[in-house]
Simulated assay, not measured.
Amino acid sequence: MTLPVLAITLGDVAGIGPEITAKSLLGHDKLREKCVPVVIGDLASVRRGVESVGGDPVAISQINDPSEAQNVPGTIEVIQVGPSLESVPVGELSPEAGDGSYRFVVEACRLARERAIDGIVTAPLNKAAMHAGGHSFPGHTELLAQEFGVEDYSLVLSAGDLYFFHLTTHVSLRQAIENITFDRTFSVLKLAGAFAESMGKPNELIGLAGLNPHAGENRLFGDEDADVLAPAVEAARKQGLNVSGPLPGDALIPSAVRGNVNLVVVCYHDQGHAPFKAVYGDDGVNITVGLPVVRVSVDHGTAFDIAGQGIAREASLVLSLERAASLAPKWDVVWRAAQAM
């Protein structure tokens, strides 16, 4: 069986991306049985990452196209994108590093559109650095959506069989409330249904968390649950989706953690991220559903405070590679199902 080729975007080179990439590719040989990893980034930064974890820079080689990858355990194959970032200081916010993180993602998207790769795995970028570098995206997800020209997409946190879809992510809470519309809610419910269908579980229960405490409690604590979320649930049910909600988040999310609900839709960033990270930590990954190619990301940031010390844990990146490798062969099914909804 042909192994999926996965582009690893190096992220912000001033952060821990280079060293967790080095640890993942030099210390986890069994990954090579699941995928062909190709780093999209900066040779000098990868070399610095390898040295920080006590590796030998001779393991690094430059290639010009993913088709050249040999996938030999104990090696790192890198496609250089743009000028060298060797002068970027580690652990500091840098416009050059922010611009680089943007360019790495854009190049990976180009390779995906040309079908030179089968999936994208992203090391963390720093949003402030990317903005300083001239690219005003809230994060990876929105940049990927623009590159692929999609409007219906969702950030999805996943651990095992549990998936948290998000109606909104990197905006203020005030803006999130404004962004939670009938159309957006209906769209994400359909994406969750398409994802379930692609996994062979078209009748999988989808739980929608309420926006307000107690899901509004009959309008005592706000009208959004009754006026926006409930009609979207009803519309999704009419399309054959098994949706329940809006349900109080403090009841739905613990039930999901206990394994009673595998597909959860939350309203805003911290409603999903805070409990998810508290429970799963390094065992979680970030998947973007709604793109024509699988994209999986680590579920942590750039950690400038420990960057360059070689102590950052690579567990989330290894898990991201494994999850992307497992999803890539059937991602066309996810994409087609999403387009058909």
Rank of each mutant, 00 (worst) to 15 (best):
G216D: 09
L327M: 10
V13L: 12
I40A: 04
V58G: 12
D282Q: 15
H131D: 09
A194W: 10
L144G: 13
D299N: 08
D299I: 00
M199G: 13
A256S: 13
F304H: 11
L263F: 01
P57Y: 04
P138R: 01
E147H: 15
V296R: 10
V106F: 02
G134I: 08
F165Y: 04
G15F: 03
G139V: 08
R184I: 05
A251W: 08
N126T: 05
G27Y: 05
D12A: 04
V228G: 04
V156T: 13
V261Q: 03
D118P: 15
G249T: 04
V78Q: 02
W335D: 09
A256Y: 07
G284P: 11
K277R: 09
T169I: 04
V81F: 07
S87H: 15
E314R: 01
L31K: 13
A325M: 06
C35L: 11
L211Q: 12
L43E: 12
R174H: 12
G210Q: 03
P57D: 07
T169P: 11
D299P: 05
G222C: 06
K190N: 13
A315M: 11
Y280I: 03
A230E: 10
V285K: 04
S52N: 02
A274D: 07
V171Q: 10
T122Q: 06
C109G: 07
A337H: 14
G49L: 04
A69R: 08
L205E: 11
L162Y: 04
A340L: 14
Y102R: 04
D183R: 09
Y268A: 00
T141P: 15
V289G: 07
C267D: 00
Y163L: 05
